[in-house]
């Protein structure tokens, strides 16, 4: 299994190279073709037309598009993502500071979406034909009908403002200082440095934005899992298990669920990728300092190096999450393992 996993990951890695190249070329090309002027936006009063031209040269924006791309790609391969036009800082530094927040948020949202979706799917199946199923079905419809950013606002207004149950701004409460940086991940650093106050505060601050993200995933998982379970329990091997006197609970969890989960896992792979896209608005609304928030600033200021780099990071994350889902898929599907070993 370990060998097959490594083999799969290697194949994914090889496939990722052309995908990343295509995405980088596409993002780079589209941004350069837009009739927008990042240099003009960053010029201070007192600057002249000659200053404008000099700056354009300094940023390499006066060169042919293909040459610009090759220079950028060359630097990227050596780990240099360039300098931000707006922030006047290395893009790598900006992303290194913001990325852990997004990864923590997406991980929490992903985990919440999978757990709630999985539990809800089982619940809907268990209550099939009853009022409970209809209620859950209605709830999933509502969850899917409202976009993530609107859920974010509704959660803030209801849970944050009306009930005042949970915080909704930033990553930590006032008066709670950041733990000393070890890994850059707030939750991990809090644990490593024994800062339980910051761990608690960070977890509380994660709940609402993670819920807003999870709402995009959970109802879909619930529905697919329910449908898949309904089909699976009609299969002959389930009937035979019942005839052998196996309990319904064991049939569901041991026999039906592993097979029924496969379509849900595929769906999680696809939706997990979309979840990163959802962070752009959710982070802005919750003032969560991740790469989504960084992207908003970069787009507003047409900060080309930051937009390109963040887009590429998103692409890497989506490919990463797809690879993880593939491994999970293989782990629960013996046919794939068998095919891989041949």
């Amino acid at each position: 299994m370990a060998f097959l996993t490594l083999q799969l990951l290697f194949r994914r890695l090889v496939l990722a190279i052309p995908i990343l190249l295509c995405v980088s070329a596409l993002v780079f090309g589209i941004l350069r073709l837009l009739p927008a002027d990042p240099v003009g936006m960053s010029l201070p009063p007192g600057a002249t037309a000659a200053d404008y031209e000099k700056l354009k040269q300094a940023f390499g924006l006066d060169r042919p598009l293909f040459e610009q791309y090759l220079i950028w790609l060359g630097k990227l391969l050596s780990g240099d993502m360039g300098g931000s036009i707006f922030f006047r800082r290395p893009v790598t530094e900006l992303i290194a500071k913001a990325l852990p927040a997004t990864l923590e948020l997406v991980s929490a949202g992903f985990a919440l979406g999978v757990i709630v979706g999985g539990a809800g799917g089982l619940g809907m199946f268990a209550m099939r034909g009853g009022a409970g199923e209809h209620a859950l079905d209605g709830a999933t419809t509502i969850m899917m009908a409202i976009p993530e950013f609107l859920w974010a606002i509704l959660l803030i207004l209801f849970v944050g403002v009306s009930l005042q149950l949970l915080p909704f701004i930033g990553r930590l409460g006032p008066g709670i200082q950041l733990p000393p940086p070890v890994t850059g991940f707030l939750l991990v650093d809090s644990v490593l440095t024994g800062r339980w106050d910051s761990l608690r505060s960070a977890l509380l601050h994660l709940v609402l934005p993670a819920t807003a993200l999870a709402i995009g995933l959970a109802p879909l998982v619930m529905r697919v899992l329910r449908s898949s379970l309904l089909e699976t329990v009609q299969d002959d091997y389930i009937t035979q298990a019942r005839l052998r006197g196996v309990s319904e609970r064991r049939i569901l969890l041991r026999h039906a669920l592993p097979n029924a989960a496969l379509p849900a896992i595929s769906l999680i792979g696809v939706q997990g990728g979309f979840m990163f896209g959802g962070t752009v608005l959710v982070e802005m609304i919750f003032a969560y300092p991740g790469i989504g928030n960084l992207m908003v600033d970069a787009v507003r200021n047409h900060d080309l190096p930051v937009i390109q780099a963040v887009a590429l990071v998103y692409c890497v994350l989506v490919l990463g999450i797809n690879a993880v889902v593939d491994v999970a898929y293989m782990a629960v599907n013996p046919r794939l393992r068998l095919a891989g070993s041949r």
């Binding site: 606002i153 803030i156 207004l157 944050g160 701004i169 802005m284 609304i285 919750f286 003032a287 908003v296």
Partner: peptide
Amino acid sequence: IEIVRDPTARVAA
């Protein structure tokens, strides 16, 4: 100073 870019979230805060 809490940096809150979204105006609705500033009102909520």
